[in-house]
Design a protein around this nucleic acid. Structure first.
Length: 248
DNA sequence: AAACAACACAACCGCACCTCT
DNA sequence: GAGAGGTGCGGTTGTGTTGTT
């Protein structure tokens, strides 16, 4: 298991690897209250049993992590229903197809692969699939060049057959430019053969319609829990409000 | 067995976007 | 409309592990 050496930043906030205790604090807090404010959350997390000790002890016994770090830890590692371990062939193919369509929009890709996070998919792409993608692209490029040189040839070579088999299609990434972020290296995809745009649009038509719904449901569930909890134990919420009126 | 390289992935950083005041 | 703060995203880094020489 690779880990970053624990350290602290200039504000005394901890950085690096999360400990099991920190994970527990974060999970306990979010499963109970949800993540209503990532920036403030670390100061409340870990204090479920110590609310009666007052404001100062709350801060001292909370998570010494920045909100961003908490958010990342929760989304990429701690939240429920995350898959760990090897990718199935189906998942690999899905990632490749979606990447062709969406480019480096990892969160959008992750939204279509249950249990996988954008960070995980991004890592997997860089360490595994990117190579495969580039190899296949290189092969395809060679085939394309040889086809140009021999203008009379209309037959598909063995190499191109392998390339296309690998991706299950000869579909393009021209649509990708419609969706890619400014930071995406879209130029590197421009050499890919452009074919059957309309078919590809059909294939991914579910995406725009469903993506927001999927993510919305996920978070809505946690907020429903929060709201129902607030109804049964309102003192926790009034307590929080009083606490932070001291701070501001 | 040791040294080095490549891999794997958790975590961090900076930026863009959105919402609120 | 402008500014501030919060959130989310994609790129990158750091470091333990594994493989190779």
């Amino acid at each position: 298991m690779m880990v970053r050496t624990p350290s602290s930043d200039k504000n005394g906030l901890k950085r690096g690897t999360w400990t099991p205790e920190e994970d527990k604090k974060l999970v306990d807090y979010i499963t109970r209250y949800g993540h209503w404010n990532w920036r403030l959350l670390p100061q409340f997390a870990g204090n479920l049993a110590t609310k009666e000790f007052g404001f100062k002890s709350l801060l001292l016994s909370g998570l010494a992590r920045c909100g961003k770090s908490c958010r990342l830890r929760w989304l990429n590692y701690l939240r429920p229903n995350l898959k760990r371990g090897n990718y199935t062939e189906e998942e690999k193919e899905t990632i490749i197809k979606l990447h062709r369509h969406l480019g480096n929009r990892w969160s959008a890709i992750a939204a279509q692969i249950p249990g996988r996070t954008d960070n995980e998919i991004k890592n997997y792409w860089h360490t595994n699939l990117k190579k495969r993608f580039e190899q296949d692209r290189a092969t395809e490029s060679q085939v394309s060049n040889s086809c140009e040189r021999s203008s009379t040839s209309t037959t598909t070579t063995e190499a191109s057959a392998n390339t296309f088999q690998s991706f299950n299609s000869t579909k393009d990434c021209s649509l990708f430019s419609q969706h890619s972020s400014s930071s995406t290296t879209s130029a590197e995809f421009n050499t890919v053969t452009i074919n059957e745009n309309l078919d590809l649009q059909d294939e991914f038509s579910f995406w725009d319609a469903d993506t927001d719904l999927v993510s919305a449901n996920f978070w809505l569930e946690s907020y429903i829990h929060d709201i129902s909890y607030a109804a049964t134990e309102p003192e926790f919420f009034t307590f929080d409000a009083q606490l932070w009126s001291h701070d501001n």
